[in-house]
């Protein structure tokens, strides 16, 4: 865990030196956290399905832990994203499709954790939250399909950073992938640690 954190620090702080501007540093934090937030969501649903199949409470525990970690990561991704958005696009928030998706993810995580907190009986809580976790996974592909339509129609001109994504230096790309891998490792370690 500690070593992972140190490696993370190295990876996080090396690339900006050769990066674009100072602002671009944020993406090395933002993209990996967002990636883990989404990953944790599916991991949580995966263990929820495993729990429903087997009835093993350890799977429920893993599903819950993944959701808790995911919630923390999604908050970090959103906060860093909002700052980046303010600095580059001029506003903290403008409901572009990605922002909407991540916000829905916050809502789902929040709803899931509220549900867990509200059910006291251990067995009922495990079942109920596993069912909710699986139900909420279904919405994601639909939102990915619907949201760009919704929000393009409100803003006829594409205001999103489609142009900014065209090219990426291999160095930055490597660093970004490394950061994402590292964030995933941190997530994995945190999942394992409290087992």
């Amino acid at each position: 865990m500690l070593t992972a954190a140190i490696i993370a620090a190295v990876i996080f702080f090396v690339p900006p030196v050769k990066g674009l501007g100072d602002l671009a540093k944020i993406i090395f934090f933002h993209v990996p956290t967002a990636w883990v937030a989404v990953l944790a969501f599916f991991v949580s649903a995966f263990f929820a399905a495993k729990f429903l199949r087997t009835g093993e409470f350890s799977f429920d525990e893993l599903s819950a832990r993944s959701a808790r970690l995911g919630f923390i990561f999604v908050l970090m991704a959103t906060a860093s994203g909002a700052i980046f958005s303010k600095l580059t696009w001029g506003a903290y928030w403008n409901w572009d499709p990605r922002q909407t998706t991540i916000f829905v993810l916050i809502l789902i995580y929040g709803a899931y954790l509220t549900l867990r907190a509200a059910v006291t009986d251990e067995k009922a809580r495990a079942k109920v939250s596993a069912v909710y976790s699986l139900l909420s996974v279904l919405t994601v592909p639909f939102l990915v399909f619907i949201l760009p339509r919704m929000f393009f129609s409100l803003h006829p001109a594409p205001v999103i950073n489609s142009a900014g994504k065209l090219e990426m230096d291999t160095e930055i790309l490597t660093a970004l992938i490394a950061a994402a891998v590292d964030a995933t490792m941190i997530f994995y370690q945190l999942m394992k640690k409290r087992r």
């Binding site: 829905v104 809502l107 789902i108 929040g110 709803a111 509220t114 549900l115 909710y132 139900l135 909420s136 279904l138 919405t139 939102l143």
Partner: peptide, 8 residues
């Protein structure tokens, strides 16, 4: 709270 994300 639970219904909203699902029915979005």
């Amino acid at each position: 709270i639970l219904l909203f994300p699902i029915t979005l």
